[in-house]
């Protein structure tokens, strides 16, 4: 699937309220085609809520989202066709075998040649050797890879990954980084994380949020200060408004 929009993800004044609590407050950002963008913030900053709105799992309280030029609130299904999403914790049907799960998800996403798509995504996610194993019996690292293979099954132009490396060992993290880096220029990736080294190693650009507001949008190489210092400064002191 090819990208058609000039900006692949466009978010304008996006807000989300849970009762009286404002979890996401007027966030705006754009992601260019082929870019790998990190979505950084301390726990509870609103990362997952924002990604869930982008993927159509939650409706925004206000604001607009355009995925590859499609209004993701009004045309949620069409927008979702262009996304591969790996939610936090990688929920999977544990009773299925890996290939059964991918075949099911491929059918749900109306993938034309599922067998071929399955081979490609299993290879890309580095999980081809586990294709006949039962998902519930896999290690966390393997389950994470199955989640990535699932996100890739329909060959979507956009990948949204929520905390993709949480709970992985260093070798698995390295493998994951290599896979994501290989998408550079080919797929647009938005990944959330609170692991700074990971974002620094993988992402072209970083968006930092705190208490539901965007406080920075920068490229790791742009500044001489380390990302760790910037992150600490932006997310621990002062008011979010004054920090961007």
């Amino acid at each position: 699937m090819r990208l058609t929009g000039t900006k692949v993800i466009e978010v304008e004044a996006l807000s989300r309220r849970y009762g009286s609590r404002l979890a996401v407050n007027e966030i705006s950002f754009r992601v260019e085609p082929g870019e790998i963008v990190g979505f950084l913030g301390p726990n509870g900053a609103g990362k997952t809520t924002t990604l869930r709105m982008l993927t159509g799992y939650l409706a925004p309280t206000s604001g607009t989202i355009r995925i590859d030029g499609i209004d993701a609130v009004k045309n949620s299904i069409r927008a979702r066709e262009r996304l591969g999403y790996m939610p936090e914790g990688v929920p999977l049907y544990r009773e299925m075998r890996v290939y059964e799960y991918l075949r099911h998800r491929g059918a749900l996403k109306a993938v034309p040649n599922i067998a071929e798509a399955m081979d490609r995504s299993l290879d890309l996610a580095g999980v081809a050797d586990a294709r006949t194993r039962i998902v519930g019996q896999l290690s966390k690292g393997y389950r994470q890879r199955v989640g990535l293979a699932e996100a890739l099954i329909a060959d979507p132009p956009i990948l949204i990954l929520d905390e993709p490396t949480s709970g992985l060992d260093p070798n698995q993290v390295r493998h994951f980084r290599e896979v994501v880096r290989s998408f550079s220029g080919k797929k647009t990736v938005l990944l959330s994380s609170h692991i700074l080294s990971e974002v620094e190693a993988v992402c072209d650009r970083v968006i930092i949020i705190r208490e539901g507001q965007k406080v920075a949008d920068l490229a790791p190489g742009d500044t001489e200060t380390s990302l760790e210092d910037i992150f600490a400064e932006l997310t621990t002191a002062g008011s979010p408004e004054g920090a961007s």
Binding site: I77, R78, R80, E81, L83, Y85, P87, L92, L108, K109
Partner: peptide, 8 residues
Amino acid sequence: ETLLTAPV
């Protein structure tokens, strides 16, 4: 979450 974010 994976079910409702699929295009169905």
